[in-house]
């Protein structure tokens, strides 16, 4: 017998997990910023043991701390997948829980493989990018399991712009994801800085275009306006952090004998605000798809609405 869609406990649990994933991304960024990715040379064991706590000094505290937090997140994701499967009546939510579980497993394997192969830039970049994707999946699940999602009807707001907000918001997500991939590739010495800078200009233009389309139309529902406003604010912070990372790491820190605090703070902040940007763009795309209909579509053509009411 399916239970009601809204479960306060499941929603809270999903939010806590999303928060932990956010911390895990920060912990991963600390590993890279402190050049500690290979401080523990083996995997899946740490110094030959699955359970013995190593001496948490130097780079080991970053790398092993990251592994421990990842194990906790992995365990909680198993709980989330089972809980969602058993308690949520929406079939697509059940599968989304399994997708989250598959993603965290793949993420763990990528993290181990990159250690075993001495951090090749393309595996490390895939590890970094999949982390952001996993974060977005769980943030989406938190949104789908919220009271607002369950109890608020879609606004069915018809907008006449071209390209449609659905298209624009989707490309915001894709452009930020590409930008995060390029940022990770640069951070792991796979590519030069130029592609990341060019992509930053594209992302900035797309986000400003999309957000201004949303915010200048006062009839757009607040569920869409809120993430659009947040995107602009985060974009501004992220551009500043990008400049700070460039100055502290590339310009001033090129010959540093060890990672300096300023470069660690700026680069880790740049990574985690990037994660927030991607997650916010995903929320925006979802809310746009739910509440806003393109001018050509009939009012009943709302896939997410159908899914909610199914």
């Amino acid at each position: 017998m399916p239970q009601p869609v809204y479960s306060a406990a499941l929603h809270r649990f999903t939010k806590v997990l999303a928060g932990l994933i956010f911390l895990l991304i920060a912990a991963g960024a600390l590993v890279t910023s402190n050049d500690a990715g290979l401080a523990v040379p083996d995997w899946p064991t740490s110094f030959g043991s699955l359970w013995r706590m190593p001496h948490m000094v130097g780079g080991v505290k970053f790398e092993h701390g990251h592994r421990m937090l990842a194990e906790l997140v992995g365990l909680l994701t198993i709980v989330l997948a089972i809980w969602t499967w058993r308690s949520d009546s929406r079939r697509w939510m059940k599968w989304l829980g399994l997708v989250a579980l598959g993603t965290v497993i793949a993420q763990g394997v990528l993290g181990g493989v990159t250690v075993l192969f001495f951090l090749p830039w393309w595996i490390s970049s895939a590890h970094a990018t999949l982390a952001q994707s996993f974060f977005c999946i769980v943030v989406s699940m938190a949104l789908f399991s919220s009271r607002g999602w369950s109890e608020t009807a879609p606004a069915n707001f018809v907008e006449h712009g071209s390209p449609s907000l659905r298209t624009l918001s989707l490309f915001c997500v894709l452009s930020i994801l590409v930008q995060l991939m390029l940022g990770a590739a640069f951070r792991h010495s796979g590519i030069k800085l130029l592609p990341h800078l060019v992509s930053a200009a594209v992302v900035t233009a797309l986000l400003i275009w999309t957000s201004s389309r949303v915010l200048t139309n006062h009839s757009v529902p607040s569920a869409v306006r809120r993430p659009a406003s947040a995107l602009l604010g985060l974009l501004l912070v992220q551009l500043c952090l990008g400049l700070a990372s460039y100055l502290t790491r590339v310009q001033w820190g090129a010959d540093a004998v060890q990672p300096q605090l300023a470069m660690v703070i700026s680069t880790v902040s740049h990574v985690i605000v990037g994660a927030l940007l991607l997650a916010t763009s995903v929320v925006l795309a979802i809310e746009v798809r739910r509440h806003i209909l393109p001018a050509t579509a009939p009012a009943s053509d709302n896939a997410l609405d159908k899914a909610v009411t199914a």
Binding site: S162, P163, T167, F171, L174, S175, V178, L182, S189, G190, I191, K192, L194, P195, V198, S199, V202
Partner: peptide
């Protein structure tokens, strides 16, 4: 049509960037 053009732009940008491998 617009979506298709934007998609092509993304694919082209991706190919360009992956070609910029650091020597």
């Amino acid at each position: 049509m617009i979506m298709r053009n934007i998609f092509i732009l993304f694919v082209a940008a991706g190919l360009f960037f992956t070609g910029c491998n650091r020597n």
